[in-house]
Design a protein around this nucleic acid. Structure first.
Length: 202
DNA sequence: CCAAAGATCGTCT
DNA sequence: GACGATCTTTGGA
């Protein structure tokens, strides 16, 4: 299963897509070479009824516009003035949802990751956390809206090894205390005991 | 090792 | 004009 994931794969219920992304491989073909990592931590943001989601209440803006389109596109935004966060749009067209990719286990192009993040010494920390991940992978808002399923796209996801065994840990999403009841939902998924997951199990 | 604070800017009110 | 789906640095124990 090293095929690029297709449009239909992303156009399924967001929680399903989020869990299935664990173990898949995110690839960015940059001018200097390909960079890739295995997805080990994600968070689901479930549309207009989820207070933590950028589309809560149907709010549509220039920033989140891509979430209102079809699944399988890159949703990238700036956080805290200096870091990018990479998400993948999911679900059906009338459900503006996305999945935040929070951590990867570096797989290839690790020398490029180190060049992008010279201050990070430990390999397992290169893509630990959404901001670091984007910096190491050279993902910026220039990649906003890219269709990941398009064979011509430089940014995409391939299926996992299919047979690989791991346990999925469910926990609360990070940094959304303002979301009231939705802050309690266990919509963060990670690979149990992986050394690249960004926060200890809740 | 850990807690605390600073950095920095696009987006929405 | 305020505030993040964050990370690094610093200072202390």
């Amino acid at each position: 299963m090293n095929e690029r994931l297709n449009k239909g794969w992303f156009a399924r219920p967001t929680l399903t897509v989020a869990k299935d992304l664990l173990g898949c491989v995110l690839v960015h073909k940059t001018p200097r070479g390909a960079i890739s990592g295995t997805i080990v931590e994600v968070e689901a943001y479930c549309g207009v009824t989820d207070r933590a989601c950028h589309t809560y209440g149907g709010r549509r803006s220039k920033r989140n516009d891509v979430m209102f389109g079809e699944a399988g596109h890159a949703y990238i935004y700036l956080i805290y003035g200096m870091y990018n966060c990479f998400n993948i749009t999911s679900d059906t067209d009338d459900h503006p949802c996305a999945i935040l990719i929070r951590a990867l286990r570096p797989l290839s192009g690790i020398d490029l990751m180190r060049a992008n993040s010279p201050k990070i010494r430990k390999e397992n920390e290169l893509c630990m956390g959404p901001g670091r991940l984007c910096r190491a992978m050279a993902i910026t808002r220039k990649e906003y809206g890219l269709p990941l399923f398009d064979p011509a796209s430089r940014l995409y996801v391939t299926g996992g090894d299919n047979v690989q065994k791991f346990q999925i840990v469910k926990s609360k999403r990070i940094g959304i205390d303002y979301a009231g009841k939705d802050a309690e939902r266990l919509w963060r998924f990670s690979i149990k005991d992986d050394r690249c997951v960004s926060h200890a199990p809740a």
